[in-house]
Simulated scan of single mutants.
Amino acid sequence: MAQGSDDESENRLTKLSAFLFLHTEHLVYALLGGLLAATAALALLDAAGVLYEALKVLGGAKQMLDVIDRLLFLLMIVEILHTVRVSMRSGRLTCEPFLIVGLIASIRRVLVITLQSSEVMHGQMSDEKQAMFNASMIELGVLGGLILVMVVSIFLLHQASPSGARPAGEE
């Protein structure tokens, strides 16, 4: 009889701990989502301010790159927020949103490197400028390969999922 009581007590303890962990996880996800939403709102305001400043200059490549950089950063935050929402609904983590965030971050870096490289090319080429340009080209090559791998990975994930099926939480 003592054995049955121990099993029942252990079962109750397991259910209680599972309940507490699940609700703690949901609380953390909700707080994280709130912080990400606040960060996204601030990033949107910042991007709008940068866009306003860029419109004053009209045609400045550096200013336009800053606007695109801020918007891509905002897109990354929104994609992470989406991942948190889907994870809360489905109870599992999916890898596709992280691949998309990595893809956006890589494209963002490509844009920055391209602008920096074009600025280096103006004027007299010194050994230092040449070394910086060469390093930029290597980084662009690596980023290009990384972008290709992420695009192929996203494509393969879509091919592996049943046709027409959407990930949990994306109804």
Rank of each mutant, 00 (worst) to 15 (best):
L22M: 09
M137K: 10
Q3M: 14
R85H: 06
L36P: 00
T83G: 15
K15V: 04
C95M: 05
A48W: 12
A54S: 10
I113W: 00
R85D: 10
L32M: 07
I154Q: 01
S153N: 09
S118I: 03
L35N: 05
I100Y: 02
I68G: 03
E10Y: 02
I154F: 03
M88N: 13
I100E: 01
T24I: 10
K62S: 10
L111N: 09
V152Y: 06
E10T: 06
E79S: 01
E8S: 12
Q116Y: 02
F155N: 13
S90I: 07
S9T: 10
S136H: 14
C95E: 02
K56G: 09
A54D: 02
K15Y: 07
T94I: 03
K56E: 06
L72K: 09
L103W: 06
G123M: 09
M121R: 12
Y52N: 12
L156R: 08
L44T: 10
E10F: 10
H23N: 14
L16C: 13
I80H: 07
E139H: 00
S126T: 14
H82M: 13
E8K: 12
G141A: 11
V28G: 00
L148D: 07
G169R: 05
G49A: 11
A37D: 01
R109L: 14
L31T: 09
G4F: 14
R70C: 05
R85A: 07
T24C: 15
L20K: 14
L75D: 06
E96W: 00
L32W: 03
Q3I: 13
M1Y: 14
M132H: 11
M64N: 03
E171G: 10
I80K: 01
V101K: 00
Q63E: 14
L74S: 04
F98P: 07
G34I: 01
H158Y: 10
E139F: 01
V101L: 07
G102D: 01
